[in-house]
């Protein structure tokens, strides 16, 4: 993968100047490259990596495995379009394996998520079965460790 994308994927806050130093390319080139990525939709946007365990009232997150019956004409895509339109849904993947969609949802409480599954997701045409898993703790997110590193590990000053 392009080095520029690799860097931005973990930390999009580097300035063009810094990126140009790091990659040994002129600033113009970096600017043009990023612009191209944005225009072609490779880069869709820029988000912060947030440790929600540290945010009060951040609510709960669940992953819902979904089995569906694909529709004759449109396969999985039209079902996906319906599911992703719910604002509770943060992330949606089509999967290979024992179920079809992985749906990541946010809710204020477990009851919220439960009722979302029962009243909304399950009622979408084609949905056959659901299995809801609640997330307890996030250790790593988007390539970044959320665990506070034990600073005593690397105290030795070796010359």
């Amino acid at each position: 993968m392009d080095k520029l994308l690799e860097i931005l994927r973990e930390n999009s806050s580097f300035t063009t100047k810094e990126l140009s130093l790091m990659l040994g390319e002129p600033e113009d080139y970096i600017t043009a490259q990023i612009k191209e990525y944005e225009q072609t939709g490779v880069i869709k946007g820029y988000q912060a990596i947030i440790d929600f365990d540290k945010v009060p009232d951040a609510g709960v997150t669940a992953i819902i495995d979904l089995k569906v019956t694909p529709e004759r004409e449109t396969g999985f895509d039209s079902i996906a379009t319906k599911i992703m339109s719910f604002e509770e849904v943060r992330t949606l993947y089509l999967m290979a394996g024992s179920y079809d969609f992985a749906v990541i949802v946010n809710g204020e409480t477990m009851q919220d998520v439960a009722s979302f599954v029962a009243r909304k997701i399950s009622c979408v045409d084609g949905v056959v079965a659901t299995a809801t898993h609640f997330m307890l703790k996030t250790y790593k997110l988007g390539g970044v460790s959320l665990v506070d590193e034990d600073s005593t590990d690397r105290r030795s000053m070796v010359l």
Binding site: R154, S156, M157, V158, L159
Partner: peptide, 22 residues
């Protein structure tokens, strides 16, 4: 001779160490 300097750094919080040789 680096020892005493290192001892100062260890006592402090929020130090970013660019001193490490590993």
């Amino acid at each position: 001779g680096i020892r005493k300097f290192f001892d100062i750094a260890v006592e402090m919080d929020n130090v970013i160490s660019l001193s490490i040789g590993e």
